[in-house]
Design a binder for these strands. Sequence first.
DNA 1: CAAGCTGAGATACATTTGTAACCACTAGCA
DNA 2: TGCTAGTGGTTACAAATGTATCTCAGCTTG
Lengths: 318, 318
Amino acid sequence: MTDLTDPEKMTRAAWLYHVAGLNQEATAERLGLTRARVNKLLQAARETGIVSIRINERDLGLLKVEEAIRARFGLGFCVATPALGTADTDAALRMVGVAGAGILRERLGAKPEAVIGTGWGRTLAHLSRQMAGISAPQARFISLMGSLTANAAVNPFDVVHALAQATGGSGYFLPVPFIADSAGARETLLAQQAVRAPLALAQKADLALISVGELTEASLLRREGTISARDVETLRAAGAVGDTNGIFFDRSGAPVDHPLNARSIAVGLDRLREMETVLLSGGRGKIDATRALLGSGAIAGLVIDGDSAIALADAETG
Amino acid sequence: MTDLTDPEKMTRAAWLYHVAGLNQEATAERLGLTRARVNKLLQAARETGIVSIRINERDLGLLKVEEAIRARFGLGFCVATPALGTADTDAALRMVGVAGAGILRERLGAKPEAVIGTGWGRTLAHLSRQMAGISAPQARFISLMGSLTANAAVNPFDVVHALAQATGGSGYFLPVPFIADSAGARETLLAQQAVRAPLALAQKADLALISVGELTEASLLRREGTISARDVETLRAAGAVGDTNGIFFDRSGAPVDHPLNARSIAVGLDRLREMETVLLSGGRGKIDATRALLGSGAIAGLVIDGDSAIALADAETG
DNA sequence: CAAGCTGAGATACATTTGTAACCACTAGCA
DNA sequence: TGCTAGTGGTTACAAATGTATCTCAGCTTG
């Protein structure tokens, strides 16, 4: 019988080391073995389950879920807000916004002159209201997408403005519609000098903060009247499940072939892939779109509400 | 809340380190802390019992000794930890605590709604830190003795609290001093409604976990200043060899006739005799007191460190 | 009986972990 | 307004741990 498969030796070594608190050296001495051997015995003891480490998971929070999602989609990080156990979308958006603000603060702390690209939506709006007292006068915030919408209540300009305001940094935005009237018009607009400069800036952002929209009648784009009921239908027919920055993508996260995608003015997924793109996703209705976008490979980090995180992890692993 | 007392941070760090297998460096990065902090968090997590290490099989070899002790004192069981061959009291206490935790786990598994009475001391403190991940929300833990000591570092409340915390059960303690100022004060305190209820609970515990103290200048009671040097002298003169829960007993395990015994507030030996009382004894210095207490007939089971077990068995049989 | 294998010791080295000393910040607080 | 205690970051260093390599003794096997 070799040492390494002998449960008794493993057990003895484990007791002396873990319980009696001897170090490997002393354990080896006590057992009349070399330290290397004890080291291997202890490894074997862990591997065979003779010693097991228990952790009281009461306070673990969603770390396990976060880690599962992170690993599944190859993300740099995944942050889940506490789960509420309800479908309170408003609260979810708020929490995700706050958590996202924390990440932005951290990044600005590390690189005060960073260029931050931002998307659009209520989550981003919440985020932008959570930066009070953070000073970053050299930071530049820029919208990753066209800024002009019919209804100005919530638009990228608003987000950029609030961020610049709160931090003392500068805000830039693309002075073009969110979705051009035609593919041709899009080209024309993009050719404008006043557009090219900020667009170039947006394309070399250090950090992109984006959100995702589901493709339903209840979605923000639809409610704002930015797209028509017919658009929703044809997009669905083309395989779209959601959008980010007005770019519609399918289950796999690839942009769909649809006229709207040829008209939307925004920094594309390929560009996002090159920067650190953080997706903020709040609300259970967005799970499918979120999963798809995560699958695109463009996302480096995810901030998600706890309930959705649990549902997402369950669906993936269970 | 400081980092080092935050159970969530401890748990997260512990999980990343022990389960996810990150090293302290990577864990620190993930949590946005420094490595030193993570190191301290992990230590704190072990100390508070958020993580505990369990070792599967018992060491073979002391069965004969265990059996000899069991038979000699008419115990239900006797468990001896592995012998170290040294007089390392710290290690002995730790090992006995771990072994005791195993017994408690077992009892809670069999009767999740059990009432567990606990004594006081470092051994019990170790035991209470070894219950991570054991869920017993219906269990009740109650101190068998007054809880208030001058120095709060190690006191019955701490033990009860740690046990309740780890298992999700409830903790109770006697809100009175360990030793009253006078016999009269003791009566007054015992008459309080706030004392009678928990005391009644303590007296009908299913399982009592107690430790034993030797009566010397080096004993915990003495070091904590709970009793004076003069007390030690007069107790010795009265025949006392040790105490459990503040009850001083002689060679035969019978309470001695001494003023201190009329002032200590604890569940008495007669009551302990009626429940399953398990004595945890670690360290060679406690052998005499242990032998005496075993002789009282109040003890149903013994957990003892291997070296002491050998010495005890030798003295009895040899 | 020699060649080849295997388990374990010896040794050396890289990495990880534990710890202490020192500094910076902040919240009370006189 | 400083003062102070508490908290946590930073750095550096010592100790412990993990791992690879080499060697040797005992065994198997042809």
